[in-house]
Design a protein around this nucleic acid. Structure first.
Ligand SMILES: [Zn+2]
Ligand SMILES: [Zn+2]
Ligand SMILES: [Zn+2]
Ligand SMILES: [Zn+2]
Lengths: 151, 151
DNA sequence: GATAGGATCTCCAGCCACTAGAGGTTCAAG
DNA sequence: CTTGAACCTCTAGTGGCTGGAGATCCTATC
């Protein structure tokens, strides 16, 4: 029986995150000690490791919920699980492609910039006018400039 | 003088988003009609186009705020702008690298899966156990499985 | 000039997946 | 038995929007 702190140390998932997973129904509710503190056992730890690894591979929580419920039914076909993973793979590929277009555009404006004044700066010029771009990058999406909630 | 709807149509930025940009100080407050409706002119349209294009290239709003204020000072050196763009480029490259690792891992588990039952599924197995992975992908970050607020 | 219906206004809630903090209780070591 | 770390619940904030309610305004047609 692990306290939430031990479970956190064992899996690398932060304590508030574990509580959050319980709140949204990804982790079953833990037993409680006499003083109302959560107590976990090996099953919980495995499940949490599954969640964490899936998150590291970029799966959204809804998909993980489904993968978890599939993983409990050993005898059924794994087609549904493979569909989810394939969908995730497509999303990743798609995102890579968009990002590579951004990379090219950013590199282009940086190499073309003469490092003079703002009025001559290619960076500022290109940002102000998409006509100067090679790509279509309509709406790449957010969460690029900052690693978001990474550790 | 454009209404917010015309400005939206002209730039491809949604109406609530324009109001949001004003709220967070990216767009200067618009003049108002007798009936309190926003009125924009060419300056606003240019500024909004700059914001939108910067967003398409993935810059976070805080960086865009700084780029905008730099772009108003034509005589100064563009070094600061280039620093921001370079930082963005690094972020994009970094993100690509992480995503490529994810892609490999996802492809590996999908090709290894025998398409049988859950108990034999490589997808489920690998998700449950990072030992089977080649990569370190500790905390890639979120927002992969869904295109977020893209149109 | 009345009226219909679109566009606009403000304000508030929600999205995802956490993260941080306040203010209080419980537990384990010394 | 005391200390202080770890735990509890609850709330609010992050980024960058998006959507809705309910009220007001603007324009076009009759
Ligand atoms: Zn420059
Ligand atoms: Zn462009
Ligand atoms: Zn499978
Ligand atoms: Zn792994």
């Amino acid at each position: 029986m692990l306290s939430i702190g031990k479970l956190s140390a064992a899996t690398g998932v932060k304590v508030p995150t574990i509580r959050y997973y319980e709140e949204v129904g990804l982790l079953p509710e833990a037993e409680r000690s006499a003083g109302n503190q959560r107590l976990y056992r090996a099953e919980h730890q495995e499940r949490l490791a599954f969640i964490r690894h899936s998150r590291e591979l970029g799966f959204p929580l809804d998909d993980i919920r489904e993968l978890l419920s599939l993983s409990d039914r050993l005898e059924i076909s794994c087609a549904a699980a493979d569909v989810i993973a394939n969908r995730q793979l497509s999303a990743v590929k798609d995102r890579i492609a968009r990002l590579q277009a951004l990379q090219q555009e950013l590199e282009r404006m940086l190499t073309q910039c003469a490092k003079g004044t703002i009025s001559d700066c290619k960076v500022i010029e290109v940002l102000g006018n998409h006509e100067n771009c090679l790509h279509d990058h309509h709406r790449e999406g957010c969460h690029l400039g900052y690693p978001a909630h990474d550790s």
